[in-house]
Amino acid sequence: MVIDQLFWLFFMTFILLLIEGFYCVTVTYNLFRILIGLEVLIKAVTLFVIAAGYLSGHLALAQSIVITIIVIEVVVVVVAAGIILGFFREFDSLNVKNARRMKG
């Protein structure tokens, strides 16, 4: 029963973080803040993976997976930061409205 309660606790945190992240990504006008939202999302998932490993007793597997996730996360963030910088150089602004030119 303790396991179930713990799972529910992690699950609630996971869901709350997801809500924060998705809210941030969809509502903000700033490209950089979109990136912050994405980071929060990845953090939520990282937490959930570790929690799953802890609860099921496969912590070694979960740890090795989390390490890989972190490495990939870094590369994603670096690429995204590069895009944002390039974007800033082109438009002299980080407003996401500049990224709505392609439509239809």
Binding site: V25, L38, F87, A99
Partner: peptide, 17 residues
């Protein structure tokens, strides 16, 4: 291209999640 790549990246992270 910045716009296209950034949209791809955002959706890709959503898929990752």
């Amino acid at each position: 291209a910045f716009e296209g790549a950034f949209k791809y990246l955002i959706m890709s992270v959503v898929a990752t999640v």
